[in-house]
Structure formats: C-alpha cells, structure tokens
Amino acid sequence: MAEKRRMFDPEFREGAVRIVAETGKSIAKDLGINETMLANWVSRARRAGTAPAGESDELERLWRENAQLKRYNKELVMERDVLERCMVLWVK
C-alpha cells in the first residue's frame, strides 16, 4: 500500500527556512522531514528572494573572501620569490 504524502502549510515552510537562514544549521531531523526537502525549500526561497539574509549568507561571503585572499597571497609569494632570485643574481 502506498504511503500518503504529508502536506506542509506555507507558514511551516517559511518558519523552517527562516530558522535555517538565521542559524545556518539544518533542522530537518528536529522537524521530522527529509534533508532534501528542507534544502529544496531553502533554495526556492532564495531564488524567490524571500529567504532572510542570515548566517549562511555571511558564511558564503566569508568563504569567497577567504578564497580571494588566498589567491592574492599566492601571487605575493610568487613575486617575493622572483625578487629573491633577482637579488641572488645581482649579488653574484
């Protein structure tokens, strides 16, 4: 016999999305729903622009900034190495 699909009202969905956006943690197990379902709700809310900006957005911004700083640091290390090699050649 087929399982009956559970239906969730919009207020429940919005509350779950708000909690995920504010805390940055998945609460699917606490709510008794599937992780994938909650992820779908969050992604739909973000695409629609109704998801509140929360900690997860801040973490994404920090991750992008960290990646940018790592690239910049790598470039500076390469420039330093080139200057060191030039100094060694100049001294000889």
Rank of each mutant, 00 (worst) to 15 (best):
K4G: 05
K4W: 06
F8L: 14
F8K: 04
D9V: 12
D9E: 14
P10K: 10
P10G: 04
E11I: 02
A16P: 04
V20L: 09
V20H: 11
E22H: 01
T23I: 00
K25D: 08
S26L: 08
I27M: 06
A28Y: 03
A28R: 06
K29R: 13
D30C: 02
L31Y: 08
I33F: 04
N34W: 08
T36K: 14
M37T: 15
L38W: 03
A39M: 06
A39G: 09
W41T: 05
W41S: 04
W41C: 03
V42Y: 11
S43M: 12
A45E: 06
G49W: 03
G49M: 03
T50I: 13
T50M: 02
A53G: 01
G54I: 01
G54D: 04
E55D: 07
S56G: 05
S56C: 01
D57K: 00
E58V: 14
E58H: 04
E58T: 15
L59H: 09
R61N: 01
E65V: 03
A67Q: 14
Q68S: 13
Q68Y: 09
L69M: 10
R71G: 02
R71S: 03
N73E: 13
K74Q: 15
E75F: 05
E75I: 06
M78Q: 13
E79A: 12
E79R: 14
R80A: 07
D81N: 12
V82H: 09
V82F: 13
L83Y: 12
E84D: 07
E84V: 11
V88P: 00
V88A: 14
L89V: 08
L89I: 05
L89N: 08
L89H: 05
W90H: 11
W90L: 15
W90I: 08
V91G: 00
